[in-house]
Design a protein around this nucleic acid. Structure first.
Length: 612
DNA sequence: GCCGTTTTCGGCCCGACTGTTTTCAGTCG
């Protein structure tokens, strides 16, 4: 875990501990906000050790928290947290993580019944003494029991690529329900986060009863959690464990993935005339919504899921008094009244999108901008398609270029190519390039970056290739400093065009390397090396915040599907979404360039290499 | 504990649902 993550976790723990002790909730909140700010940073927080002023510049960090950060960097601890942990047992935090158990309940369980761990909680559920806790009835206990079982069965959040197809399925079925006028998928799924907590489906209808019933009786539904007039929540089963394609993967990927057995799906029913306000509200993020509401208040307006209303002195909600909204039907008109451009969902994370102006709306990359795939495997290593099949598939998608980049020799499990096999493979690629018209097939390699940063082929061999994608596959538990050195060496190598899946992380399963992305981005910008977003939903590596850092440093981005089989091209959308979350525009993505510009860049790197 | 296009002090987003109550506290997003 990186220093930033460790620090963010400690601050977030402080926030939770404060909530349990019943401290001022704004104080707790301030610690959460600071934790989030640090989590979003890609530069190593340790570099701020001697720069308190710079820390104070960061939004959400004031004098007190700045001191705590410096204390953490210097000592690895925060005394306030130690103090709180002397007061509140650490196990109470575990209990607090149970859905349905908030700070008040956790405190009551702890102080009333001595619950200091999940085991304690289970014990008093079993012996029935939990019912002695105030406001604790049979139903609440039953819900906690189920939540505990669920937590044990699943790893928590679900990968985007697993949740998205399910959401689409639900949305399509809801569209067919009688009376339903519009359907939208909201929540973190719409924002394109790499993992999804629960799926939010929004429907516009005047007949909420019918919609709710149809929703709750979907075949996948295992349990109904809530069934109100405007909101239903269900737990659904996912079809078995994630079907991870093993395809001869060389490392932990072949080990059984954790089964994400179920996930929660929420249905929200809204009136058609407030669909935009509801969609905006349920898309979030929470932080973005808070900013929007603060912005509304400054303009004598108030925003809720029914619309944007004029502010008055009445206490009851405006929609309940028949007040006419200033805007409600579409997101666009609400943003407009708040003097903002329509903000794409991927940017709604309170990461600076509020500074956008209507005159200068963001022009993010789209799926249609992608014209080339620069990372694909064939049957020569661990892919499922021949060179020609791959090329025809890419051509079908309208691409002008496909790069064949099979694994290098150290990837023995993935049938990596020896130098001799690679040379023959290059000939086969050249031949296919002659045969298949209408698309350019590049001869390339996904060459391993060895633990010390050396590449898996010698330079003379790499020189024969049109394109080199260098990726780390082994030694992914290296310390951050070694990882940075290793990747820097690859990025600066004159024969490398693209740094593939830089950290080697697997969403929810493997943390991967934690290199200094800022330093890598700067080197990449300087050397003209592109940094890859690996579009497979299990990887999405670079992450969104890494992309942002790379762009700020002046680097270019590649979005590649890392194709092993036909279906992998479908993952492109997740790569593009991740790019958009990092504020990527088409002109900064090499896969969006014209054939001429792309091939020119690939060649120019080689020319500068030979003159260097 | 942070922050300032009404504020260096006094604010800090808003509503639905559940379950336990008998008018509302707690949790969630």
């Amino acid at each position: 875990m990186s220093t930033n993550q460790r620090l963010a976790e400690q601050l977030s723990e402080i926030a939770k501990l404060l909530e349990v002790t019943g401290a001022n909730s704004f104080r707790a909140n301030a610690n959460s906000r600071a934790a989030r700010a640090i989590e979003d940073m890609t530069e190593d927080i340790a570099t701020y050790a001697d720069d308190r002023e710079a820390l104070l510049e960061i939004d959400g960090i004031g004098a007190k928290i700045a001191d705590k950060i410096i204390e953490f960097i210097k000592t690895g601890k925060i005394e306030e947290r130690e103090q709180l942990l002397r007061e509140v047992p650490a196990g109470v935090l575990e209990v607090l993580r149970t859905p349905g158990v908030g700070p008040k309940t956790a405190r009551a369980l702890w102080q009333g019944k001595g619950v200091e761990s999940i085991a304690d909680l289970k014990r008093i559920i079993d012996d029935g003494s939990i019912l002695e806790v105030p406001r604790m009835g049979k139903k609440t206990v039953e819900n906690i029991k189920k939540a505990l079982e669920f937590a044990e069965a699943s790893g928590g959040r679900t990968p985007l690529g697993v949740a998205a197809p399910l959401a689409v399925e639900f949305a399509e079925r809801m569209q067919k329900v009688k009376g339903v006028e519009r359907v939208g998928v909201a929540g973190s799924l719409r924002r394109g986060r790499d993992t999804i907590g629960d799926i939010d489906i929004l429907v516009a209808t005047k007949d909420g009863e019918t919609a709710g019933e149809a929703f709750r009786s979907m075949p996948e539904v295992m349990q109904v959690l809530a069934a109100g007039a405007t909101k239903s929540s269900v737990r659904v089963s996912l079809e078995g464990p994630i079907k991870a394609e093993t395809r001869g993967k060389s490392d932990e990927e072949t080990k059984a993935p954790p089964a994400v057995a179920t996930m929660q799906v929420d249905l929200r029913v809204v009136a058609p005339e407030s669909f935009g306000a509801a969609l905006l509200y349920f898309t979030g993020s929470k932080e973005h919504n808070i900013r929007l509401r603060e912005r509304a208040l400054k303009r004598e307006l108030t925003l809720n899921e029914y619309g944007l209303f004029p502010l008055d002195d009445e206490k009851s909600p405006p929609q309940s008094r028949g007040v006419k909204p200033v805007a409600a039907a579409t997101e666009e008109e609400i943003y407009e009244k708040l003097e903002l451009p329509w903000i794409p969902p991927e940017l709604r994370e309170d990461r600076g999108e509020m500074d956008l102006t209507p005159e200068d709306p963001p022009a993010l990359i789209t799926l249609e901008d992608i014209r080339a795939e620069l990372h694909a495997h064939t049957t020569a290593s661990d892919g499922a398609m021949s060179i020609e099949e791959l090329a025809r598939a890419a051509k079908e998608l309208g691409f002008h270029t496909i790069a064949v980049t099979d694994h290098s020799k150290s990837q023995t499990i993935a049938n990596g190519l020896s130098k001799d096999r690679l040379l023959k493979h290059i000939d086969a690629i050249r031949e296919a390039d002659e045969t298949v018209k209408g698309i350019r097939i590049l001869a390339g390699s996904e060459v391993d970056i060895l633990a010390d940063g050396k590449l898996d082929y010698d330079d003379a061999t790499l020189e024969k290739l049109d394109i080199v994608v260098a990726s780390p596959h082994w030694a992914l538990k290296q310390d951050p400093k070694a990882a940075t050195e290793r990747l820097l060496r690859a990025v600066r190598h004159p024969l490398v065009h693209i740094l593939g899946h830089a950290t080697g992380r697997l969403v929810g399963r493997r943390e991967g390397l934690a290199p200094d992305i800022g330093a890598i981005a700067e080197a990449a910008a300087e050397c003209g090396t592109a940094l890859e977003i690996n579009a497979h939903w299990m990887r999405l590596d670079l992450r969104d915040i890494h992309v942002r850092t790379a762009l700020e440093a002046g680097a270019t981005i590649a979005i590649n599907c890392d194709v092993h089989g036909m279906g992998d091209f479908d993952n492109l959308r997740y790569g593009v979404t991740t790019g958009r979350r990092g504020w990527l525009t088409a002109d900064r993505c090499v896969n969006s360039w014209s054939a001429k510009k792309l091939h020119g860049w690939l060649k120019s790197k080689r020319e500068s290499a030979s003159t260097a």
